[in-house]
Amino acid sequence: MRDPVRSPEGAGAPGAEHRRREPEGRDPHYNFAYLDEATKRMIRRAILKAIAIPGHQIPFGAREMPLPYGWGTGGIQVTASILGPSDVLKVIDQGADDTTNAVSIRRFFARTAGVATTTRTAEATVIQTRHRIPERPLREDQILVFQVPMPEPLFRLEPRLAETRRLHALADYSLAQVKLYEDIAQQGESASSYNHPVLVNGRYLMSPSPIPGFDNPKLDRNPALLLFGAGREKKIYAVPPYTPVKSLDFDDHPFAPMRAPHPCALCGSTTHYLDEIVTDDRGGRMFVCSDTDACAEAAGRAGAAR
């Protein structure tokens, strides 16, 4: 039966075509992965610096890309700089491989770098993501590249970059703590549901990018290298493997990740993050996994068990 909520190029039924190399290969009109080598070297230096100071934002000379700002230009530049010809690339947006922007970015690298692409988390060496961390635990030989709209975790509290730079230097995060205190005092819990700030290695407050709070615990001591690229804001930051990452909270009000209290309608998972899909105009709802690959895997397991 045709899956009602997945388009054909998503991670579909087990055994479907999930990995491919563009038949036409790399576009010879552009350098490998689009950027010139000097630019990639500059970005790799920023990445190394970022890894050396976990959670600290490194300014870099972000280039104008052929995709618009806000579409993932920071993530694309980071991916372009770390990609090698033997890498296997996975691109997700909202957890899914088949969302329009994920398709577009995957095609961009298939065309300009000619690398193999996949929808399977387990097969990928580099995963570029917008707004999610895959459900399947990552490994040491994998790199997760986040697209970041606003790298500054304090920007809603202090918009001036010269001032936030000073606050980071002093590790003065009282603004964020007072905000959290006020939320709890006024409504009993933190008001932030996504992009909840985290403290990296006990030192720098960091925006985890707009991932749901559900994904925040996955940042902590993750075996994979986590790289964050913000193109418009021209910043790169990183969480090296196994780095402690703690969501901002209070001892008596510990951080509480949230998830819709339902099983997935497709695979039955009770642990994956869910998308809520409106099925009619009479209040009908259906909940399905946001991570299309994890959903297909779980559905395969459930099918095999039956």
Binding site: P68, D93, N101, P149, S193, Y194, R232
Partner: peptide, 16 residues
């Protein structure tokens, strides 16, 4: 870019 990127799907964040 940043204004128009609001057209991109945000359903994961909206769900949370």
């Amino acid at each position: 870019g940043f204004v128009e990127h609001l057209k991109l799907p945000h359903h994961v964040d909206f769900q949370s």
